[in-house]
Amino acid sequence: MQKLMKARVHITLKNGVLDPQGKAIENALGGLGFDGISEVRQGKYIEIVLENVSPAAAQASVESMCEKLLANTVIENYEIDLEA
């Protein structure tokens, strides 16, 4: 049987990079009466389902995807979670 593995990729803006969308969400939440919010940052979430790979190979492959396409490392960080 085919063995599937799911990679969850979280892409977030690096510290110090201004996030006007996050700021707008923050303001909107304040407008709705949500108190105690110190900051909102918006990112991206991508799921990739891989087939027939070892955890190590999946990690290496998704890291390469992030470096080449999924994230722009000038402004973004990425985190990868693998789930068999």
């Binding site: 201004l18 722009n72 402004i75």
Partner: peptide
Amino acid sequence: TECDVLPGVLMPNAGL
């Protein structure tokens, strides 16, 4: 900029 011929990146406009 995305293919690194030029440095930096063009982000969403500050005024959204």
